[in-house]
Design a protein around this nucleic acid. Sequence first.
RNA 1: GGGGGCGUAGCCCAAUCGGCAGAGGCAGCGGACUUAAAAUCCGCACAGUGUGGGUUCGAGUCCCACCGCCCCUACCA
Length: 817
Amino acid sequence: MTDRVSEASRRRGYDPAAMEGRWQEQWAESGLYKTDEDLRKPKHYALTMLPYPSGDLHVGHWYAMTPSDTRARFMRMQGYRVFFPIGFDAFGLPAENAAIRNGIHPRKWTLSNIERMRGQLKSMGAMFDFDAEVVTCEPEYYKWNQWFFLKFFEKGLAYRDEAPVDWCPSCNTTLAREQVVGLDRRCERCGTPVIKKNLAQWLFKITYYAEELLDFSGIDWPERVKTLQTNWIGRSEGAEAVFDIEGYGPVEVFTTRPDTLFGATFFVLAPEHPAVERTTTPDREAEVREYVESAGKMSEIDRTDVTRRKTGVATGAYATNPVNGERVPVYVADYVLMAYGTGAIMAVPAHDERDFEFAKQFGIEIRTVIAPPGWDGGELAEAYPGEGTMVNSGGFDGLSAEEGKERVTGWLEERGTGHAAVTYRLRDWLISRQRYWGTPIPIVHCAACGTVPVPEEDLPVRLPEDAEFAPTGESPLKRDEGFLYTTCPRCGGPAERETDTMDTFMDSSWYQYRYLSPHYDDGPFDPAEGEKWLPVDQYTGGIEHAVMHLLYTRFFTKVMRDLGLVDFDEPMVRLFNQGIILGEDAEKMSKSRGNVVNPQEFVDRYGSDALRCFLMFIGPWDQGGPWDGSGIGGVARFLRRALSLVAGGDPSGGQANPDDLERRTARTARKVTGDLRAFRFNTTLATLMEHTNYLLAVKSEVGEARWAEAMNVFVRLLAPFAPHHAEEMWTLMGEKFSVHERDWPEWDESLIQEEEITLIVQVNGKLRDRVTAPADISEEAAKELALASEKVQPHVGEGEIKKVVYVPGRLVNMVVA
RNA sequence: GGGGGCGUAGCCCAAUCGGCAGAGGCAGCGGACUUAAAAUCCGCACAGUGUGGGUUCGAGUCCCACCGCCCCUACCA
């Protein structure tokens, strides 16, 4: 069906795909999209998120990139020098999986994908400057990942620690965080639930910047992202208190409620807590060991299932409460997480739901220490986590909970058994991957010297090209002797290289800087270029990166600032999150679901301008939504009609007033400009369509000079959306190449005003008549005019007019008793 | 359990400060062109805004309570 559409169009000489191909060639030849270096103009660094070279551009890429391109083009025409680069996030698991499955080397697979995608990107007709292209799997790029690693290491921001990682027991390998999918945390590749595994891992100390990362004052980002990051960082204020475990020593706990310390009737350690083993009494040993082991084996899903009954066992040990010297039993229970706070808690069942549940199950005393309003002194039916008055708390009785927090904390500090503390939910960023296709971590392990960083001048540590791939789950680097065995840079003795590679989020944390000078040798980027372009002015991308990439890149920029590389605090001044385009079935597009929409079909049939405009037209950009290709024909028709304004074609014969030409042109320019500033592409397109319909209707009735002027404005307004069609029209109009180098249209505000307006006449808020009046009508005259309306009379009748509401230029409302 | 978003015509979506519910498009219907169809062009119709209250001269818009759908998060002490 749709084929017939384009076939018929071609027969009539409209072949958008061919026309667009011609312009793309000419743009490339003329270097139209080489970055403007005219420093007299204000800068605008526009950036769209770094794509992964999965093989083919899908419609989601178009949805993310073409509005971004439209906006960049708009800025360019508004007189900015615009930098709009593109590149490829070329390391990562899919390439390695392809290698294991098909025996293709990840590098070969990746580079051929890039080759294909580069061609497809060009068919988009975007103004990307391909001279700035960055490919993160090239040594000239990842060398600087390693350089950053060394700088982080020097500053103590990179360290090695044993940490639990997500491990897929079926693929026998660790997974990147983004490859653990769904609430039930399954491996994306095979669907097996992941487990935790302890491995020595490299981490970046992002928590060092936790406090600063909570400060968004320098940036104009969506509230949503700021909230997500704030929650992710999860700052909690409270106190740390020291409990003494008999036969072991002091163990710190974190609490947000030091005011409830007197209500602590038991003490809980996480199963992984080092104190568990050493405090368990001999008679409890067997049971505790069994519990700890089963907790360790349990999948994350089961372990964190909130609906599950609380479990745990007594260790036989006792801990001493620092405020009252009371001995309370120590339990080990998996509802306490090693990863948060200190991995141990004081349990206050009366005022914490979880502790309450546990105490009920184990028959532990529930002691009220904060009296709820109107409390009768009896036992609480459920935990009371709210505010109230302190009771059963020794000398603190009678204080409000709020005051109690401070006083108890002070009391602890005086005695050296505690202090005020802030805890963050944010964990340090685990960057180790037991994978081949990533940046080698530039570290050497020497039996004599220990962990030794590779000297800067020896960078890059290259990935060996001849690695062998087998589905053993072991990185090929571990079996690559040429890579593995080396000499210690410190003592010259025999040593082994670190075989872990870096998380690919490392690559995307600073790529915006590399774009400035992708081949620069003396640093991650050329500072002279940085002066010209940094920081990024407008970033666009999906919200799914809110707490990963967008947090990491903020962290990186702060470290770069502290290294003296940049002099600002935030990488991207403004951020816009587009929505996600779903499959026709309203599900996320994925190969396995078979609902992936291939843009190429639509480009071939309707042209890239049509697809660009269609994606911008279907709704607000931040909303996303399911793909419904049935509407693209309408957008294609619009472009064809627009072109026919200059290329001849069917006379319209529609009815419209040719006298309005200048006013409507000015009004269209104003609306398009305003909506484009605000990223409202859908309404902008609607405005351009409306204007096209009008122009077609009056074309034959307008004189040549007026027509030429109106078209000149219209084509420039169209240019950011449909760059090829606009260029074609511009040329057909006899204007000089290229429309994309022209200025954005201005408009005369005074032209927009109508001389006559339609006044709405209401009686008791109900529409009763419309009257035409001069635009500058006075309030008195408007009211008189409304009263005089015959249609109004029956509704007013004998009733008394109590009040007349007048909204200038809009309506008169008569209130009748 | 917590946080966020969205409900307007058959469908996708518009609607400035609260002021005519409709800009645009899809699908539909009628007409023109055609031997016919497609394409193209012209025109037409279609909802009272998820539900129930409230504020107001006036509510799609503001407030309260529900219903439905979607996304994120998850024992964070």
